[in-house]
Design a protein around this nucleic acid. Structure first.
Lengths: 195, 195
DNA sequence: ACGCTAGTGGCACCGAGTGCCACGCTGCAA
DNA sequence: TTGCAGCGTGGCACTCGGTGCCACTAGCGT
């Protein structure tokens, strides 16, 4: 494959993603058809489904790369660091966007966290994240990755991360990193005020 | 409405649910069409969609009643009891099935937790649960139900409950209550071994 | 000029879900 | 008894997401 072809494919993907974000923020997710998306991106409906398996995937973009990056960050953490801290650091790092990308991230996360169809889709994506985190915890603790603690830590930390995203979306005054740290601190503290 | 009509409607719903569980455990969720479900339940496709809004709903049954019951249990908890304990107790209570219903529960939960389409659907259902729990936490702590801690406690405890269901499904030797308690204990302890 | 590959578009098709209308049954009032 | 209202039902046509198949085109190496 030549660079020109690769570029063409990448820009097509990018055009679809941009069109998707724009159309979905303009009207309801359900109200935008794949025909609309294809038209807005200047391609045919059939071609749209060659780039994205579902309508929802156009919003998520290349989430798989995100998961792979998280996995690498977790693998690269220092074993002297507490497990929870290593997970928090990895979440912060993988969500460390440049300032100019933040508006786009906000737009995307707002869609994902509020639109029911995208919320539903997210569960399948989160399963990948949870698997990666659970394996990290299992490696660090010597436990079976399918046993209670690794699974629980994975889902609970992901819940923390998601909640941090929600509070970050609502309050424009904070940074995502700060909200992530606060959520993880609360979680790691075992909610002392509630026991 | 007469009792006879109400009964007819109830039994129709029940027949659909039974047919759904049977067909979905026999073959893949995606491989069963709504036509198959309707035929198995002895009704038309159109009537199926009068009883259940989506194919997935036939597996979940009347989950709304489940959420309402959880809400009532939370409202009825003693304010002297720690918040986390009250949530755990409510989860245990609302999932306290008679021994003869356990095989059916296992079948249903196995589907919900393993089948991707049902996993996706579950996120929307969980949102209701989270809202109810977050409001309970907010009431007990005086916080805004949309602020970090109530949200986080809601999603984290629900993550604990879901994980408990998963371990309970895998290991036939334990009770659901025991697994729920263990997951909540781990969560409330803040994972001391991992800090 | 030839074949190869990759991206594309068109088309027909399947399945989920919906709106509309028409039928039948049950209960109730005239 | 007859007429009316309400409700569950079935049939039908339609939209829309998603897929399989085939044909076309452009760039590339031989």
């Amino acid at each position: 494959m030549t660079d020109a072809v690769a570029d063409a494919r990448e820009t097509t993907r990018a055009r679809i993603e941009a069109a998707a974000l724009e159309l979905f923020t303009g009207r309801d997710f359900e109200a935008v058809t794949t025909d609309d998306l294809a038209d807005a991106a200047g391609i045919s409906r059939r071609t749209f489904f060659r780039h994205f398996a579902t309508k929802a995937d156009a919003v998520w973009g290349d989430f798989h790369a995100h998961v792979v990056r998280l996995e690498g960050l977790l693998a690269g953490t220092d074993d002297a660091q507490p497990v929870l801290s290593s997970i928090c650091a990895a979440y912060v790092e993988v969500n460390d966007y440049a300032a100019e990308d933040l508006p786009l991230l906000r737009q995307r996360m707002r869609l994902i966290l509020t639109e029911p169809a995208l919320q539903a889709h997210s569960q399948v994506r989160y399963a990948d994240v949870d698997r990666v985190v659970a394996e990290h915890v299992a490696r660090r603790t010597g436990a079976d990755p399918h046993s209670l603690v690794p699974r629980l830590v994975a889902t609970a930390t992901r819940a923390a991360a998601t909640t941090a995203f929600e509070t970050w979306l609502v309050d424009p005054g904070t940074t995502l990193a700060a909200d992530l740290h606060e959520a993880f601190d609360q979680l790691a503290g075992g909610f002392p005020d509630l026991r």
